[in-house]
Design a protein around this nucleic acid. Structure first.
Lengths: 113, 113
DNA sequence: TCCATTCAGGACGAATTTTGTCCAAAAGTA
DNA sequence: TACTTTTGGACAAAATTCGTCCTGAATGGA
């Protein structure tokens, strides 16, 4: 129960991280080598972060990179679904496909020529 | 139990539709006004269809447009997840976010200035 | 074999989108 | 006011997307 935090989104998460740690945008930006304006936009979800940036941010804040990445990727998907009237069927079908495709990869000689 | 069909993907689905109906690529392509080479690529999942194209295809084959769209969108998401080691957590988190954001929209004055 | 048709897929340019930066205005703080 | 931080528009370079064109492989019929 370390950190009760209702789901928000990548940007807010990032901002919380930064403010909790007590840094300004400029400080974080300069040490990970990005324009502070860009970082500001990322925190406001106006620009997507690159994977490398997520990596650098995770390292800067000593937080889990994978978790941060999931936060971002799930955001992307969530907003795409919302674009489609929030139709959760899309996710359900996608999940089935992933599961199915994963069994293929583990399993048998599907790639035989 | 009308049509038993294991999950495949948008392209294969489309190809099945076309072959079942007995059309050549060129025939379909020319009546919906796209290059047949493009349509071929779409059937092989080498190019994504536009929404308008999906619409036209659904109309051409007298099939459900929404269903076809879901087939395509779920594909996109599934492949993205597979890129990420098939981590289904991403989908789980995305779903929570969608649900959460939907309650916001229905509910209260979140947009007040 | 020759011809016709279908499909696969590479290459290309035009159009669009994305990415990071710069700069100025706004907001916040003392 | 003076100073710092954050916001956000504008911009160019880079990357990606989109549709088309063209060649070649495969198939099938006469």
């Amino acid at each position: 129960m370390e950190n009760i935090k209702i789901h928000t989104n990548f940007g807010e998460h990032l901002r919380t991280l930064r403010e909790t740690a007590g840094f300004t945008l400029r400080e974080v930006a300069s040490t990970i080598n990005v324009d502070s304006s860009l970082l500001a936009k990322i925190e406001r979800n106006q620009r997507p972060p690159t994977k490398q940036l997520i990596k650098n941010l995770a390292s800067f804040f000593h937080t889990n990179e994978r978790e941060l990445l999931i936060e971002f990727l799930s955001d992307q998907i969530a907003y795409k679904i919302l674009d489609e009237e929030g139709d959760l069927n899309i996710l359900k079908v996608a999940e089935e496909k992933v599961s199915y495709l994963k069994t293929l990869h583990n399993g048998n000689d599907y790639d035989k020529k």
